[in-house]
C-alpha cells in the first residue's frame, strides 16, 4: 500500500469516527431548531428553522437564571480550586518539611475516596451549617482538587531553581516570589488547569443534585426535571440541553488546543 493510499484510508476512518462522535450533539441542536410540528422529522437539516422550542423551554424553566447560577457556581469552584491548589502546590514544590510526603499522599488520595462514602456525612454537615439548598453549599465542599495540586506541583518543580534563587537574592519573600515569579511563569499551565476545572465544575451533577434537591437552581437539575415526565417534549428538552452545553462548547471553539491539552495532561500524570 502506498503512503498516499494509507493517508486516504486514514482520512476516511477518521471522518467516520468523527462524525459518529458529533452526531448526537448535532442531533440535539437540529431537533431543538425544528418547528414544533417537525420535531419527529428525520431530515438531516432542520428546515425551516424555528426558535419555538427555545421559547417553550424558557417559559418552563428560568433558563437565564439557571445559566447564571451555574456560571456562578462553576466560576467560584474553579477559581477557588485554582487558588487553594496553587498555594498547596507551592508548599510542596518550594519547601522540604516534616510530614510532606504523608500530606501529599493524603491530598492526592482524595480521588480514591468514593463520593458515595462521604456524601452522607457531608450532607449532614451542610444541614447543620444551614447551607442545604444554597449555592455556597454546592461550592464549599468542592474547593479542593487533588488533580490541581498534582499538576501544579509538577509544573512548579520544572521551574529552574536559579529563577527562584534570583528572586530570593532580590530580597523577595516567598509570598512575593509566588506572585511575581511563579505565577507569571506558570500562566499557560494555570490557564489550562482553569479551563479543565471550570468545565468539570460546570458539568458536575451529583453534588448539586443532592444539595439543591428542592430548589433545582442549576441548569443540570432543571433539565432533569424535564426528563422524568411522561410524554417527554423533545423540542424544549433538546433546547434546554443545548443551552446547558453552549458555554462549554463556546469555550472549546475558541480555545480548542488548551482545552484538549488540559484534559490530556490531567489524564497523563
Amino acid at each position: 500500500m502506498t503512503d498516499r493510499m494509507r493517508a486516504v484510508r486514514g482520512h476516511v476512518v477518521l471522518v467516520l469516527v468523527g462524525l459518529a462522535c458529533v452526531f448526537p450533539i448535532y442531533w440535539m441542536y437540529a431537533t431543538s431548531l425544528r418547528r414544533p410540528n417537525d420535531v419527529f422529522e428525520t431530515s438531516l437539516l432542520p428546515w425551516p428553522l424555528s426558535l419555538a422550542s427555545y421559547g417553550e423551554a424558557a417559559r418552563e424553566l428560568d433558563v437565564l437564571g439557571l445559566l447564571a447560577n451555574t456560571t456562578l457556581v462553576a466560576v467560584a469552584v474553579a477559581v477557588g480550586q485554582l487558588l487553594v491548589a496553587l498555594l498547596a502546590a507551592y508548599a510542596f514544590a518550594a519547601y522540604r518539611f516534616r510530614g510532606e510526603k504523608l500530606l501529599y499522599l493524603a491530598m492526592i488520595g482524595t480521588w480514591l475516596v468514593p463520593f458515595q462514602v462521604t456524601m452522607l456525612p457531608n450532607y449532614v454537615l451542610l444541614y447543620q451549617l444551614g447551607l442545604l439548598n444554597t449555592l455556597s453549599g454546592v461550592v464549599l465542599p468542592q474547593l479542593l482538587s487533588g488533580v490541581g495540586v498534582l499538576l501544579l506541583r509538577s509544573h512548579m518543580r520544572s521551574i529552574p531553581a536559579e529563577l527562584l534563587e534570583a528572586a530570593r537574592m532580590d530580597g523577595r519573600g516567598s509570598w512575593g516570589t509566588l506572585w511575581t515569579v511563579v505565577v507569571p511563569v506558570l500562566r499557560p499551565a494555570l490557564a489550562a488547569l482553569a479551563i479543565l476545572l471550570f468545565v468539570t465544575a460546570w458539568n458536575e451533577y451529583f453534588w448539586p443534585a443532592m444539595v439543591l434537591q428542592r430548589s433545582g437552581a442549576v441548569i443540570q437539575l432543571g433539565i432533569r426535571g424535564f426528563l422524568g415526565t411522561e410524554g417527554v417534549r423533545w423540542g424544549p428538552l433538546m433546547a434546554a440541553s443545548g443551552l446547558a452545553c453552549l458555554p462549554v462548547f463556546a469555550l472549546y471553539l475558541v480555545l480548542q488546543r488548551q482545552v484538549v491539552s488540559a484534559f490530556v495532561r490531567s489524564g497523563l500524570r
Binding site: L14, V15, V17, G18, L19, C21, V22, P24, I25, W27, M28, T31, V199, W202, N203, Y205, I219, Q220, L221, I223, R224, F226, L227, V232, W234, L237, M238, A240, S241, G242, A244, C245, V248, F249, Y252, Q256, V259, V260, F263
Partner: peptide, 22 residues
C-alpha cells in the same frame, strides 16, 4: 478530527442523557 472526536467529553452528563433518550 481531534476536535470532533473529543467533543462528547464536554457534554454535560444530564444533557447527554437527554439526547440519548431521544
Amino acid at each position: 478530527y481531534q476536535a470532533l472526536v473529543f467533543a462528547p467529553m464536554l457534554v454535560a452528563p444530564v444533557a447527554s442523557a437527554a439526547v440519548w433518550q431521544w
